[in-house]
């Protein structure tokens, strides 16, 4: 268990001065993930907010080796780096133990990069893939992704006279990766730093391919004041919209159970992207969202019990 005081004494591997938005969760996640690493680490980054805002040439926020090549291929890229590591270690040209982490947003992970991620997971490289999941393509201006929840208004599935925002539910990527039978898969949310840090450490210790899906509130795309990021992240968990759990060698474990499961509207009403759902006529959508949350929560509880 990491405490904030101790973490604050560690050397910063992801530093300030980047151009992420005020209140952006991606920077917080990157920083906490790196603080969780005790061994040297090499990072591969998919194209996206984190990449464009942290490495505007000739500046960089990264005090560790960092690499970006394209949008849909962070998993393939990190698997190439890790393969080179095994080759060079065998020949004695690299001697240190190194961890390999890829960062991608939900666009680069759920959608355009899904094949690359699936390939890397199936091959079982000794890598950790962290999805900073802000539930839409934020870098290009808030377009819907397959991680966007039902009812959210985005610029390609906007709320309108005949639309209540995104029609479809988001896909369950964490379950898809768990179905690859890799040793470690987890879900967490911004606001649970202890949980994130221990998950990163579990992932890096698992000896194979691992994946962590971190829900990351985005003040711009979710439309809320920047100081609310952590609160909204926590509330996603307390409403059971985004349960935090892990799948270790196939065993499901719930890492946090809210004392009192809050209604989903508590989370929705803080965000501009759901504002239209609180106007008359959208009651059925709100009801569907609550039903989906309840159903998924019960399903997860059952999996964690069995």
């Amino acid at each position: 268990m990491a405490n904030l005081k101790e973490l604050s004494k560690k050397e910063e591997k992801f530093t300030g001065g980047h151009r992420l938005c005020s209140g952006c969760g991606a920077g917080i996640i990157a920083r906490q993930v790196l603080l969780a690493c005790d061994k040297p680490v090499v990072i591969a980054n998919a194209t996206g907010c984190l990449e464009v805002a942290s490495t505007i040439f000739p500046y960089t926020s990264w005090n560790v080796p960092w690499f970006h090549s394209a949008f849909e291929n962070a998993a393939a890229t990190v698997s190439g780096i890790e393969t080179a590591y095994r080759a060079l270690k065998k020949k004695g040209r690299v001697t240190e133990d190194i961890n390999f982490i890829a960062f991608g947003g939900d666009g680069g992970t759920y959608d355009i990069g899904l094949q690359s991620l699936s390939g890397a997971m199936e091959r079982g490289h000794n890598i950790l893939y962290v999805c900073y999941n802000n539930e839409a393509y934020m870098n290009t201006g808030i377009q819907r992704s397959s991680a966007t929840p039902k009812g959210a208004s985005t610029t390609t599935a906007p709320y309108g006279k005949q639309s209540t925002g995104k029609v479809q539910s988001r896909k369950d990527l964490t379950a898809i990766i768990a179905a690859h039978n890799v040793p470690y898969v987890a879900q967490t949310a911004l606001g649970f730093h202890n949980d994130l840090i221990s998950k990163v450490q579990s992932a890096l210790a698992c000896g194979g391919a691992s994946f962590i899906n971190v829900l990351q509130p985005c003040r711009l795309g979710w439309a809320y004041p920047p100081e609310e990021t952590v609160r909204i992240g926590k509330l996603a968990v307390d409403t059971c919209v985004w349960p935090i759990y892990e799948v270790k060698n196939g065993e499901y474990k719930l890492n946090y159970k809210p004392k009192e499961k809050k209604p989903v509207t508590e989370w929705l009403k803080l965000q501009g992207r759901f504002k239209h759902l609180f106007r008359p006529g959208s009651e059925s959508v709100l009801q569907q969202i609550q039903e989906d949350v309840d159903k998924n929560w019960d399903k997860l509880l059952a999996m964690c019990k069995s």
Binding site: F67, A76, T77, S79, G80, T83, A84, L88, S116, G119
Partner: peptide, 26 residues
């Protein structure tokens, strides 16, 4: 051979992995 062989799931990933490996020093 001493080579590590990476059986990619597509040519896009094959070239991406080559790029990662090459930048890594291989």
């Amino acid at each position: 051979v001493d080579t590590e062989y990476l059986a990619a799931e597509s040519e896009h990933s094959a070239m991406s992995a080559c790029i990662g490996s090459s930048e890594a020093g291989a």
